[in-house]
Design a protein around this nucleic acid. Structure first.
Length: 675
DNA sequence: CAAGAGACTTGGAAGAATATTG
DNA sequence: CAATATTCTTCCAAGTCTCTTG
């Protein structure tokens, strides 16, 4: 089994989370990197651009393997495993496991020769508490290119204005957003103008936004976009490769000697802050980040990345192996907060904690009965805090609400469970609760649920004597709630319920609803379960601009097919009597078909209509539901993998390339796995 | 224990790439 | 094969939760 997990050069022991209290220690490094596994670590490091010192890792760089990364999986499968290139062979193997449709897992278990690159000797199994890595080598971050002035003049009171490049840059940020909804937001415009004015200077010609006309710049930008689109695919490709070449060295790190992908190695470019919902800071200028804003975290013996901007230097270098970030800078919009550079989701570090997340959720399975019994009992506890904790936990469990931390006044006004306001929950006798609030990302949550009478009464009572804007749970916050949850189960927090409920729902539905049928039908079963979870978690998306047009086009097509069907039917009736078919709608005579042929046509058309009706229905059904978020964050991939194995569904039907990479750790699960 | 710093996961939208269709 | 629809990827905002400090 272990051999199959090499993509990231690591394996994980099953059941790292046992029911003991030690379980929740962050990363049992010793276990993860036990020497028996580490000898199979993908030895690929360096690639020549990562300057790895002998001290860091005693492995030679292997260049060739990299190009291989860009070969599609299907292509890779065709190539024979080259025994001459170890890293290539290893990689291939890992890929094969991922992409094969579980024909026979033992086939993939061919022994890999013990690698000379084994690092078991330096994998100190006793790595300390909270330690995330031993060696870390990377090249820092890449900066967006400096601003290139275009010289297109905007108008002020109808007259062209000269702007310095700095002023023009900010004007262009605004002009480019002329066709967005932000133009209808007074806050956005005001914040923008305040920040732009600082750059224009006090006595600039431009004083009022209302007198500005950005359309020349907007139109210039549209033309540029069009130009880019019209570029021949050959030079598009050349451009892409050029970019890739530049970024190549920033894309990878060597973590404990293993080559891993970086997530966001590009420093965020300057722009206007696009806050969601009614964010008080929307439109503010997000200033350019310079090297002197950036703190780098890197292994002690690794060379300090060269600062990519000549004459400038990093703010600080740290060697903190208790964290996973490679770099951070302060968010220019909210300087109290940080922007981190982390490894990609496909990295072992992320995979490791992802697995731990699901193991914790599975642990909740064993406690959930007791927890539910306990909070049900507490619905009527005479201690109001206990009562509020009970009801809040109930809502988090039953409705998959988020915890609801306190928010500052300079953020959008959204709520979660603990921050629900009286006006967000309306009790409708006898026992219905009507929820209506803005949650994360200002996504609206609207739901009417029937609840147990004690819950209903408790909510009524929490509301009495309060204003609409007052906290429903006035005795509660997330830290109190989580502190309580931790007493019920080690490591339990509010968000675990979301993971648990999402995954258990998937597992349950897949196992109840898979009834055989063909591949397509099974995929539909999966999508149906996926949709159910997305609804529970309130994962929404805005309906696409062209949705209604698409729907009416579908309707037209269906009508057209129905017309054809009618024609076939009359023709059939006539053919049975030996008469020729009527002329078609276009007036042209039709081929004289025999009744059997017409019967077939009718059957075909009927099937086509039915399929289109179904497609139409699912399309309408899913127009506001986002399936991706739950797939990425809430559904234990092992449920999916095991189900695919049991029902001979190729995993690629469910997971795309990135998900396959993200979930390598889940690929060798037993077909019998249940959440 | 309240507030704040810090680090990490989760989220929808926009843009890019790819597949489908007319 | 161009236009359109779908899917994937990137972007970065917005959450959760822990730990430290006073």
């Amino acid at each position: 089994m272990a051999l199959k997990l090499q993509q990231n050069g690591y394996t994980m022991k099953d059941n790292q989370l046992k029911k003991s209290s030690t379980v929740l220690n962050k990363r049992p490094l010793g276990e993860v990197k036990s020497s028996s596994h580490s000898s199979f670590k993908k030895p690929k490091i360096g690639d020549g651009s990562l300057p790895i010192t002998g001290k860091q890792v005693s492995v030679k760089a292997e260049k060739e393997a990299d190009d291989y990364d860009h070969v599609p999986i299907s292509e890779r499968l065709k190539k024979p495993i080259s025994s001459g290139n170890k890293s290539l062979a290893t990689k291939q193997k890992a890929t094969k496991v991922v992409s094969s449709s579980f024909k026979k897992s033992s086939k993939n278990k061919k022994q890999v020769k013990k690698s000379m690159y084994s690092k078991s000797s330096k994998m100190l199994p006793s790595s300390g508490e909270g330690q995330k890595w031993t060696t870390l080598v990377h090249n820092g971050v890449i900066f967006p290119p400096p601003y290139k002035p275009h010289g297109v003049k905007m108008l002020y009171k109808g007259k062209p204005v000269d702007l310095t490049p700095e002023q023009e840059e900010v004007a262009t940020m605004y002009a480019v957003m002329l066709d967005t909804d932000y133009m209808n937001k007074a806050t956005f415009k005001e914040n923008f103008m305040n920040d732009w004015r600082k750059i224009l200077g006090k006595n600039h010609v431009i004083q009022k936004l209302e007198d500005c006309n950005f359309t020349p710049i907007y139109e210039w930008h549209q033309r540029e976009k069009e130009k880019k689109k019209q570029m021949s695919s050959e030079e598009k490709k050349a451009l892409r490769e050029e970019k890739l070449k530049q970024e190549e060295k920033y894309m990878w790190v060597s973590l404990d000697g293993v080559k891993e992908k970086v997530g966001n190695f590009r420093v965020e470019p300057p722009g206007l802050f696009r806050g969601r919902g009614e964010h008080p800071k929307m439109g503010k200028l997000k200033k350019r980040i310079r090297p002197s804003d950036i703190t780098i975290n890197i292994g002690k013996n690794a060379p300090i990345p060269e600062c990519p901007i000549a004459g400038e230097s990093w703010k600080e270098i740290r060697h903190d192996n208790t964290v996973t970030w490679l770099a951070f800078w302060n968010d220019p919009i909210n300087p109290k907060e940080f922007k981190y550079v982390f490894l990609a989701a496909s990295s072992s570090l992320k995979g490791q904690s992802d697995k731990e997340k699901y193991e914790k959720a599975r642990l909740l399975k064993d406690y959930i009965q007791g927890i539910r019994t306990a909070y049900t009992k507490d619905f009527t506890n005479k201690d109001i805090t206990r009562r509020q904790i009970a009801v809040a936990t109930y809502l988090i469990d039953k409705l998959a609400l988020r915890a609801g931390n306190e928010k500052d006044d300079d953020e959008a006004d959204t709520v979660g469970c603990c921050t629900l306001k009286v006006e967000n929950v309306e009790p409708v006798p006898p026992n219905i609760l009507k929820f209506d609030f803005l949650g994360k990302d200002s996504i609206r949550y609207q739901n009417e649920v029937e609840v147990e009478l004690p819950v209903f009464r408790a909510i009524q009572q929490f509301r009495t004597g309060k204003q609409g804007g007052d906290d429903l749970f006035d005795k509660l916050d997330t830290s109190k709630l989580n502190a309580h949850l931790k007493e019920l189960m080690p490591g339990l927090t509010a968000k675990v319920f979301r993971t648990y409920n999402a995954s258990i729902t998937l597992d349950d539905m897949l196992n109840r609803e898979t009834k055989g049928g063909d591949l397509a039908e099974k995929v539909v079963v999966y999508q149906h379960a996926n949709k159910e979870v997305a609804i529970i978690c309130n994962h929404q998306r805005t309906v696409s601009k062209s949705h209604s047009a698409q729907m009416s086009r579908l309707n037209e097509k269906i009508d057209e097919l129905k017309g054809m069907l009618d024609e076939f039917k009359t023709d059939l009736a006539r053919a049975k009597k030996g008469k020729p078919p009527l002329k078609g709608a276009d007036g042209k005579p039709k081929k004289n078909l025999n009744p059997e042929a017409l019967e077939r046509k009718i059957a075909q058309t009927t099937a086509k209509i039915e399929k289109m009706e179904r497609d139409k229905e699912t399309k309408e059904d899913l127009k506001t539901v986002a399936l991706g978020t739950s797939k990425i964050n809430y559904l234990d991939p092992r449920i999916t993998v095991a189900w695919c194995k049991r029902h001979e569904v190729p995993i690629e039907k469910i997971f795309n390339k990135s998900l396959l990479a993200k979930f390598t750790w889940a690929m060798d699960v037993e077909p019998s796995y249940r959440f």
